[in-house]
Design a protein around this nucleic acid. Sequence first.
DNA 1: CGCGCTCCCTGGCCGC
DNA 2: TGCGGCCAGGGAGCGC
Length: 274
Amino acid sequence: MPELPEVETVKTHITPLLLHKKILSAKNFRPNLRIDFPENLAQILAGRIVKKISRRAKYIICYLDTQQLLILHLGMSGKIFIKDKKDFTLGKHDHFIMELEGDKIFIFNDVRRFGLLTLIKEEDLQQHKMFKNLGIEPLTEEFNATYLQEKLQGKKQNIKTSIMDQNIVVGVGNIYACEALFLAGISPHKEACLLKKQELKILVEKIKQTLAKAIEKGGSTIKDFQIVNGESGYFQHEFKVYGRENKSCHVCTNTIRNSKLAGRSSFYCAQCQK
DNA sequence: CGCGCTCCCTGGCCGC
DNA sequence: TGCGGCCAGGGAGCGC
């Protein structure tokens, strides 16, 4: 489900329910998601207060009052639900829950279990293997054509796979990579190192624009905490190319194509994207 | 070393 | 209605 905008939306919506609140109890219903849960996870969390919540790449980071961090990653299909305690019954694929001050239940649900939930020490954040090699955030000044050009120097890889590389720029997943490349008029197949600075400038702009718009939309569409998963906002987007194989391009009426790049579906218009 | 491929897992959908 | 095959928004790890 989530690329950066969805994760950001989830973060925004869970923040008021978690921030400065005490975790009364926690419980996990399987020993692991993508990685093993820490031993005594439930005991460690019980009684903790959430001091701060932030996002880095597609990770949500909850700062606890013990200098520990609860790290969440939604993978492909992860969802967070916040329900009133009185309405709660354990659902299928609910892997982890926390009972919160204020009679709320926080639920981590993940069908495909590519998600991740773990605890690390606050002081280890920068050096942790999950974080230490991450590229820069796309919605910052540092993400610009100069930076991207430097990173793509000598890269024979196609441009689409490159902008999805979390070690270069974080948060751009398959959908927004397709969409941003379409808006920039750049073929997903193009060798990354061949792009000129002016093209990269446009690409950077379109990535930022695509993500920012999606965040705005996600933020405005989710009103109900029953659906704290970003999904309701997600498919409301009118994608220009994503999922539109064999349909006609909105700009030139050519047929949208889909080919695999690094194993991922890549939708594009061969007429509009060179 | 850079890059592409495969795999992790479940469920939905499509065609037969 | 049932079943097999294919697909899915992420990311790690392996081998060439």
